[in-house]
Structures are given as structure tokens and as C-alpha cells.
């Protein structure tokens, strides 16, 4: 495992810690999209089915379990915690799941490495992950005033993908057999979705202000 990959994973993990910290300390999930959290949970469930049939390393297994548990944990807080659930922006978070889930499922059935249940589900998770942030970005645009932790959460999620791209470039040159075109294409799309956000995030940060969206 190279440093880019490790840094990417840590950035991903850190983003999840931030969101749990925000919810736990402020007892609030204001500004967070439940739709995005549900989509990520679906991503993890469909991708990490391989926990049952393939083993890569202890690191991978532990990380997969952490991602699964934390995504269910976040959802539990947003749905059932007495105080937290009252802070959810239900009226603003109107993005429909099927707008993303259906096209990803269709695409996974058409463009995949192998037409088997596990492979199609895995491919579906790759496509869905690429666009799962959209409800969150839409909510961000609507609520405009973003608290620091939510801004940082999205920043680290974006950084995770950017670091994975560096990891892929590194592996492309060092491992001749490593060619994951489908994953790379989805990863590029995913990182691209953050471009706009990054621009405003860095601008706000430079000006020493809270993140403000136009």
C-alpha cells in the first residue's frame, strides 16, 4: 500500500469521525443530508458484501467494518436520536434517491467487468459512490450558511478521492497489471463534483471566513 492510498483512507475515515463528532457534541445534524448518508450506506453494503467471500488484509477488513458501522451509526442518530432527529432539515433535503440509484443500477448492468450478482453490485457501488454526495451539495447550496464541521466533512471527503487519484497514478506506473478503468472513470467524476465546492471552500478559508456559497 502506498502513501497516497493510506492518506486517502485516513482522510475518508477522518471525514466520518468529523461528522460523528459534530452530531455527538452538538446533538445536531443541521446541514447534513440524510439522503447522502443513506446512499453511502447503500454503497458500503453493496461493495463490502465481499467481506463474506474474499479476504485481502486485516487492514481492509477492519476499515470496511468501520465504514459500515459508522454509516449505520450516523443514520441511526439522524433518524432515532431524540434531539438529533429534530434538527434534520427535512424540508430542504428533498433530493430523490431513485434519481441516482436507478441510473447507477442500469449502468452497472450494462458496463461491468462480469455479469454476476456480486460483480454488478460492486460496480453499482462504484457508480453510486461517485454521485452520492449530490444531495449533500444541493442541501449546502440551499442552506448557504455552512457550519465549520460540515464544510470540513465535505472537504475531507473530496480530499479522499483526490488522494485516491494520486494512488491510481502511482499504481498505474508501479503495477503493470493494475488497470481499473471503470473505477478510475467513476473516481474522476466523483472528484470533479467537488471542484466547485473546493473553490469556494478555499476562497472562504483564505479570507478567514466561514464557508459561504453564492
Amino acid at each position: 500500500m502506498n502513501l497516497f492510498r493510506l492518506a486517502g483512507d485516513m482522510s475518508h475515515l477522518f471525514s466520518i469521525v468529523l461528522i460523528l463528532l459534530k452530531i455527538y457534541t452538538s446533538k445536531s445534524c443541521a446541514g447534513l443530508s440524510m439522503k447522502t448518508q443513506e446512499l453511502y450506506t447503500l454503497v458500503f453494503v453493496t461493495r463490502y458484501l465481499d467481506l463474506f467471500y474474499s479476504y485481502v488484509s486485516l487492514y481492509n477488513t477492519v476499515m470496511k467494518l468501520i465504514f459500515l458501522a459508522s454509516s449505520f451509526g450516523i443514520l441511526w442518530y439522524m433518524r432515532y436520536h431524540k434531539q438529533v432527529k429534530q434538527t434534520y432539515d427535512r424540508e430542504q433535503d428533498t433530493f430523490r434517491h431513485y434519481i441516482l440509484v436507478v441510473p447507477c443500477a442500469v449502468l452497472a448492468l450494462i458496463v461491468n467487468n462480469e455479469l454476476s450478482v456480486t460483480e454488478v453490485l460492486w460496480t453499482f457501488s462504484i457508480y453510486l459512490e461517485a454521485v452520492a454526495i449530490l444531495p449533500q451539495l444541493v442541501l449546502l447550496q440551499r442552506t448557504k450558511n455552512v457550519d465549520n464541521l460540515t464544510g470540513q466533512y465535505i472537504f475531507f471527503l473530496g480530499a479522499y478521492r483526490a488522494l485516491y487519484i494520486l494512488n491510481w497514478i502511482y499504481r498505474y506506473w508501479t503495477e503493470p497489471k493494475y488497470r481499473q478503468y471503470l473505477v478510475w472513470a467513476a473516481g474522476l467524476v466523483q472528484t470533479g463534483l467537488y471542484a466547485d465546492f473546493f473553490y469556494y471552500y478555499l476562497k472562504s478559508w483564505q479570507a478567514g471566513e466561514k464557508l459561504r456559497l453564492p
Binding site: 485481502v56 470496511k64 488497470r179 478503468y181 471503470l182 473505477v183
Partner: peptide, 10 residues
């Protein structure tokens, strides 16, 4: 279809 590579990323 491309070659199926071992999935060792998260």
C-alpha cells in the same frame, strides 16, 4: 469487458 483485477481498495 476488461480484465478482473483483485479488489484490494476500499
Amino acid at each position: 469487458a476488461t480484465e478482473n483485477v483483485k479488489k484490494d481498495e476500499l
